[in-house]
Design a protein around this nucleic acid. Structure first.
Lengths: 332, 332
DNA sequence: AGGAATTGCTAAATCGTTTTAGGGACAAGC
DNA sequence: GCTTGTCCCTAAAACGATTTAGCAATTCCT
């Protein structure tokens, strides 16, 4: 402990920090001396040591984490967390105890997260919203505990993701089925594996069915304002659009504004299809038609796999594809 | 360690778990025996012990947490987290290292969260979205580390919250200033300290200025669907409304739908004022006029206080009131 | 057969904290 | 002077894992 600096034992410091110097009869002068040292040295107690010491040997504490990047929206993450907690609560009892938390990493810098590699932070994790750099890191190092990856395909981990190619294809079919002649796909500049797949499948389907590839509008980020700016530029330049596929709902929300500002109607002038990754897609105006994996199914798959891994009921990694479900609402 | 069950030493078990039995030349039979025991006993490694052992004595690891209830939305929480992380990153260096995470508790059962009382989980926390039960728990036990409470007034902690009475009053003034004669306040059934204060101030102001208290519409929860249902019922019953104050933006979003479904226009027929606690309030249609504490200010206050407490630059708890800022958009 | 090398495992130290038992110094009482 | 008590503090064990050093048994080499 840092504070042997004052020539006093660790026990005395501990006593003072726990505010038990009265009952343990430390001299007021010593208490003051210790307090001062604690302040001066900026002492921070080590939680791992405290916990190791404090915990009841009879009860096992299991740490679960949901790892996501700072930049990503939390909607799906929070749903995963709630479901994980539900399962955890069901398994909690005397002798077993769970903590579930969300930890964030800077996109592309997952590898820097403390305790990941040496398994000193979590007993099991769900990882999502990784960038390609994170994916290569993960692919290169198999973490020695229960890991489920959401939305990415990595051979050495259990993965849960959209059935590849499906969402984009169905979205294209919906727009073409309504008679759209000038479909547009709206994507962020930095594509994740899922968004890239959706866009590619959409383009391929449109090309196959009409002979022309759809226009591709690229937004700076995935916030609504990025979507609005990008689509406004596209419409303002007079390039046609009568159907829009946004690979994430935030972009669709921004697109709505651009469309309305351009005095076009949804879906009459421009039909819009999203993916269902926004909490309130059904309260957009008009409510957003979505083609994407059902969040319930995804969450359920993730959580059962996580617990199966932890129970060692599953050992080999598996890929689970969740087929998109179509929720027709008023926007297309 | 559990697995002395097989008559082998802890070191051997550790070796196998780390998959280093090759380099350390354990007999394949022993490895199998250990693996089987690990499986059969459902062994879960203790992360606290691992961490204590694994960490470099030269670097101090500081754990920060943001504690919120499962039931609450994550918008403000995620903003707090990002800001905390930014400050943490700025203070990270050789010898100092932060982990920031979100941990959730069941509303009203904060006291059950493991490691809170014995300080064995976090070096500092931000607590928010507490229910009255949690508040009484907190008021009764001063946690022995850095704590900042968001949106509640507790004498023994640093608190950051709306200036009491201000938001509701300003909202009322905006609606009355537009000439509204039948203002309505939309609240969830379960009021937190902040929402209760907003509703009360709104009602008091309207009563003072017009002589009649506003109608109070109570939604079952704080999701948009709850708001839509509640307002639909109100409008359907033919009770008047030409101005609406929603104490949380989710309700406003639901109200938008009910208003449009009733063929009323926003703001011409019904003006709407929210509080600015939804990430995309500026992309509602029409964009939502908000009166509420600026999220930047709140987040900044919280985070500086948290770090001041940890540095012991502040010792006594303080209350910080953040005055509402008004963001006029198209809805009122 | 005797020494060297290899194989397969264990003992012990360590991480930082808390708690329990107890010890030394001094004062008071006989 | 010896016992008893009080005051103030420390030593040591414990928490559960990992790692390092090393020991015994077996095999290999000459």
């Amino acid at each position: 402990m840092i504070a042997e600096h004052v020539g006093v034992s660790a026990s005395a410091v501990s006593t003072v920090l726990a505010d038990r110097h009265e009952e343990r009869r430390l001299a007021p002068a010593t208490v003051e001396k210790i307090r001062k040292a604690v302040r001066d040295l900026g002492y921070v107690p080590n939680v791992a040591a405290r916990r190791l010491r404090a915990q009841d040997p009879e009860v096992h504490h299991i740490e679960l984490g949901i790892l996501t990047s700072f930049e990503a929206p939390l909607f799906l993450v929070s749903r995963v967390l709630r479901q994980v907690q539900r399962m955890a609560d069901a398994r909690t009892g005397p002798g077993r105890n769970f903590s579930v938390s969300i930890a964030m990493f800077h996109a592309g810098r997952l590898r820097e997260m403390a305790g990941l590699l040496n398994a000193s932070r979590f007993n099991g994790v769900v990882i999502t919203n990784t960038l390609p750099d994170d994916d290569t890191f993960l692919a290169a190092t198999t973490l020695p505990y229960a890991v489920v990856v959401l939305g990415r395909r990595l051979p050495n981990y259990c993965c849960v993701l959209d059935t590849p190619g499906e969402s984009g294809r169905r979205a294209a079919e919906i727009l073409l089925g309504r008679g759209c002649r000038r479909p547009v796909v709206l994507t962020p500049a930095l594509l994740t594996e899922s968004t890239a797949d959706r866009a590619a499948a959409f383009c391929a389907t449109v090309l196959a069915q009409t002979g022309t590839a759809p226009a591709r509008v690229v937004a700076a980020g995935f916030a609504p304002s990025n979507g609005a700016d990008a689509l406004r530029a596209h419409l303002g330049a007079g390039r046609g659009c009568d159907g829009l596929y946004a690979v994430t709902d935030g972009l669709a929300l921004g697109a709505y504004q651009a469309i309305k500002d351009a005095d076009r109607r949804i879906p009459r002038d421009i039909a819009v299809v999203g993916v269902g990754d926004h909490e309130h897609a059904d309260f957009f105006d008009p409510p957003l038609t979505c083609v994407g994996p059902s969040n319930e199914t995804i969450v359920e798959q993730i959580v059962t796999q996580l617990f199966d891994l932890m129970n060692r009921r599953r050992v080999k990694p598996v890929e689970t594809f969740v087929p998109p479900s179509v929720v027709m609402r008023a926007s297309a």
